[in-house]
C-alpha cells in the first residue's frame, strides 16, 4: 500500500483544525478563567500549524512568537491582576448564552454555504510551497510602507495609552 504525501498533509491539517476548534469551544465552556486561557493557547498554536500547511512558514513562527509568547503572557498577567473573578462562573444567563450560540451557528451555516457554493476561479489545487520571509519583507517595505509606518504610530499610541490607563495614580 502506498501512502501519498497528501494524506500526511491532510492528516496534519485535520489534527490541527480539530485541535483549534476543540480549544476554542473548550475556552467558552470552561468555568475557570485560567483554563480558558490555556485552551486559547491550544487554539492559537494549532492555528500556527494550519498556517504551515497552508504555506505560510514565516507567519506560523510569528503566530507562535507573538500570540503564544507575548499576547498570552499579557492575558495571563491580566488575570493575575484581576484575581477576584478567576473562579466565578462567567457564562451569561442561559437565555443570552443560547441566543449567542444560535447567532454564531447561523453565521457559520450561512458563510459555509456561501464559500462552498462559490466558484473560486484562479486558485491552485495545492497550497504554495515557497519560502515567504524574504517576499514578505520586500512587499512590507515597498508596497505596504505606509501601513507599516502607521502600525508603528499605532504601537506608540497603544503603548502610551495603556501606560496612562493602567498606571496606579
Amino acid at each position: 500500500m502506498v501512502i501519498p504525501m497528501e494524506l500526511l498533509v491532510a492528516g496534519g491539517f485535520y489534527t490541527f483544525a480539530a485541535a483549534a476548534i476543540a480549544g476554542a469551544i473548550s475556552l467558552i465552556i470552561a468555568r475557570n478563567v485560567f483554563h480558558s486561557a490555556l485552551f486559547l493557547t491550544l487554539t492559537l498554536a494549532s492555528a500556527g500549524g494550519v498556517f504551515v500547511i497552508l504555506g505560510a512558514d514565516f507567519l506560523a513562527a510569528v503566530q507562535l512568537l507573538i500570540y503564544v509568547g507575548a499576547v498570552m503572557i499579557l492575558i495571563l498577567f491580566g488575570l493575575m491582576l484581576t484575581p477576584q473573578d478567576v473562579e466565578l462562573p462567567n457564562l451569561s444567563t442561559p437565555g443570552q448564552a443560547i441566543s449567542g450560540a444560535i447567532v454564531a451557528a447561523a453565521i457559520f451555516v450561512v458563510s459555509a454555504a456561501t464559500l462552498l457554493s462559490a466558484q473560486w476561479s484562479g486558485t491552485a489545487a495545492e497550497p504554495s510551497d515557497v519560502a515567504t520571509t524574504e517576499q514578505i519583507g520586500v512587499s512590507l517595505f515597498t508596497t505596504f510602507v505606509l501601513p507599516f509606518e502607521i502600525a508603528s504610530v499605532l504601537f506608540l499610541v497603544a503603548m502610551i495609552g495603556a501606560i496612562v490607563i493602567a498606571r496606579e495614580r
Partner: peptide, 29 residues
C-alpha cells in the same frame, strides 16, 4: 477529504470565527 483545498481553509476560518463570536456573546468575564 484530501487533498486539502482552499475550501478546507475557508471552512476552518469560518468555524473559528463563529466559535469566537459565540464566546463574545455568551461570556461575561
Amino acid at each position: 477529504l484530501y487533498p486539502i483545498t482552499l475550501q478546507h481553509g475557508l471552512l476552518l476560518g469560518a468555524a473559528l470565527f463563529s466559535v469566537g463570536l459565540a464566546g463574545v456573546l455568551a461570556k461575561r468575564n
